[in-house]
């Protein structure tokens, strides 16, 4: 019974953090894609003529900010894997990842 409770305890933690990272990061990536395509959505006029609409420059800036965020998160993930075996672990001081010795 205690084992079961311990597993439940572990599960909800994994679920909460996993949801934040596993569903949150793809959502940020998707927002980036949406920002990137800002202005390109209506390149066919109602009468059928094709008008080339250039993407909005601000959309591009926002998009690359979002992508950078996702890439940084992935890099933190890789750093974690690489350093975990060397006896280091990542703790989160607020939102900033900090490396500490185990």
């Amino acid at each position: 019974m205690e084992q079961f409770l311990a597993a439940l305890d572990g599960s909800w933690r994994v679920l909460a953090i996993g949801m934040l990272l596993g569903a949150g990061l793809p959502a940020v990536f998707a927002l980036g894609l949406r920002a990137l395509s800002w202005g390109t959505g209506h390149d066919v006029a109602p009468d059928g003529t094709v008008a080339v609409v250039r993407p909005h420059p601000l959309g591009r800036v926002v998009a690359y900010l979002m992508f950078t965020f996702v890439v940084l998160a992935v890099l933190v993930g890789i750093t974690y894997i690489a350093l975990h075996g060397l006896g280091w672990t990542i703790t989160f001081n607020g939102a900033v990842p900090v490396l500490t010795h185990k």
Binding site: R13, V14, I17, G18, L21, G22, G77, Y80, H84
Partner: peptide, 14 residues
Amino acid sequence: SASAAVILTSSQLG
């Protein structure tokens, strides 16, 4: 992403 997040989180939490 879901797999990576769940696997890394759980190994962090032991």
